[in-house]
């Protein structure tokens, strides 16, 4: 089944820091829900291991993430494909970072995904909301990285 994803988030940091964070496997591993490991296999190409539960089924995913059309520190295209016991999925999204008022940046993203296998059948009614929930968790964790005490708070990423 096809999934449309898109949204806009406000993050309390500057454009450059946000860009670096989104290109840092260590940060992403912490923020992507269920992500166990993320290893760089080539420049801008990563292998990820994930553990997820959707509806009545749970399992592990192995996936590949590739970044392309990079225009630092503003836009990037991200391509994801993976397969596991839950099923298989692929997707492509474009994100753009724009500065907001002092100390804030806006990240907007738009993309489509396709999901197949067990997860498509079992979870189809809730996949839309599950994907929103997972994306929400990603940003919640990401924001915490920049908040006081977070790993990326004011210069900690340097």
């Amino acid at each position: 089944m096809k999934l449309d994803i898109g949204g806009t988030e406000t993050i309390q940091t500057d454009v450059e820091t946000l860009w670096r964070a989104l290109n840092d496997p260590v940060v992403l591993t912490r923020c992507i829900p269920g992500c166990k490991a993320m290893t760089e296999t080539a420049p801008d190409a990563y292998k990820v291991d994930m553990q997820l539960r959707v509806a009545a089924v749970g399992g592990s995913f192995e996936g590949e993430i590739a970044l392309s059309d990079k225009q630092p520190p503003n836009t990037c295209r991200i391509t994801v494909s993976g397969a596991g016991t839950l099923g298989h999925g692929s997707g492509e999204a474009k994100f753009a970072i724009t500065p907001l008022s002092e100390g804030f940046s806006q990240l907007s993203y738009q993309g489509v995904g396709e999901v197949g296998g067990l997860v498509a059948g079992v979870g189809q009614r809730i996949l839309g909301s599950v994907s929103k929930h997972l994306i929400g968790r990603f940003f919640t964790t990401l924001r915490k990285e920049f908040e006081d005490g977070g790993a990326l708070a004011a210069g900690a990423a340097e």
Partner: peptide
């Protein structure tokens, strides 16, 4: 089945 050939009604929820 959806257009991608996946069966959508696999449990008694659907």
């Amino acid at each position: 089945y959806d257009d991608e050939g996946q069966m959508l009604t696999q449990s008694f929820m659907d």
